[in-house]
């Protein structure tokens, strides 16, 4: 990516609520835009204006929430505009951590792996291998506390969502929905196709850092067998969780 790349559209400020602005970077879903959103979020976080409570990155926008008892909407808008005016957030290598996530693919942990592989014209092992050989970026967290939307899924692995969502998907399930892949942090309904499961806990509200992943982090899946899954899961429960 070249540092001289010109963004497709100038960022625009829109009111999301009386106490929230949405900084929009256009409608395209691409790595350059995403990196720019995350870079802006990181910079605003470092230079936070008192009263700004939440910075919520998504694929091509950043939600900025504030406390009206502390700061006015106009003051926040001026702060944002000033940050955008000296926007040096050119596309660059993502700065987030790289997090390794062990996944047991297929079998009882990945009930959709075989069907999904057939649909894609692959065998199950190849699908699992391809899914695990990409470094993904946490584009945003949404849907549920700690649910990461991962970008970087190869286009050849895109899968339609189930016509009828499942009423219960177990916590830790690693799944593909359309052009995205993600991990269900807790048992919940959902329509994504489940390839496997991780024994890691994605969200624990009793911890000071409650989520395993944050927007901008990079994620690498590492295939493990069912025994290793049980061992890792057992160690977790053994540790008194």
């Amino acid at each position: 990516m070249s540092g001289a790349q010109v963004p497709a559209s100038a960022p625009a400020l829109q009111a999301l609520a009386e106490d929230a602005w949405l900084v929009g970077f256009g409608d395209s879903v691409d790595t350059a835009t995403l990196t720019r959103v995350h870079a802006l979020a990181a910079r605003l976080d470092r230079e936070r204006l008192p009263g700004v409570t939440d910075l919520v990155p998504a694929y091509s926008s950043l939600g900025v929430f504030f406390d009206l008892d502390v700061v006015g909407a106009d003051a926040v808008a001026r702060w944002l505009q000033a940050a955008l005016d000296r926007d040096d957030d050119q596309p660059r290598t993502p700065a987030g951590r790289v997090v390794d996530i062990p996944v047991s693919y297929g079998g009882r942990f990945g009930p959709d792996l075989d069907d999904a592989a057939r649909e894609l014209g692959l065998d199950a092992d190849t699908l699992a291998h391809r899914h695990a050989s990409v470094v993904y970026t946490v584009a945003m967290i949404g849907f549920a506390p700690g649910f990461p939307y991962l970008s970087g899924l190869p286009a050849t692995l895109a899968l339609p969502r189930l016509a009828t969502p499942r009423t219960r998907i177990p916590a830790g399930s690693v799944a593909i929905g359309g052009h995205q892949t993600g991990i269900y942090p807790r048992d919940s309904p959902g329509g994504w196709r489940i390839l496997g499961r991780t024994p890691l806990v994605l969200f624990d509200p009793s911890l000071e850092a409650p989520a395993l992943l944050a927007p901008g982090d990079r994620v690498r899946f590492r295939a493990i067998d069912a025994d290793t899954f049980e061992r890792l899961a057992g160690r977790r429960t053994g540790a008194g969780e």
């Binding site: 999301l16 609520a17 694929y59 091509s60 926008s61 929430f65």
Partner: peptide, 11 residues
């Protein structure tokens, strides 16, 4: 389609 963004109470 539209691209997901942050939403807020009141949206």
């Amino acid at each position: 389609d539209i691209v997901s963004t942050a939403v807020a109470p009141g949206t």
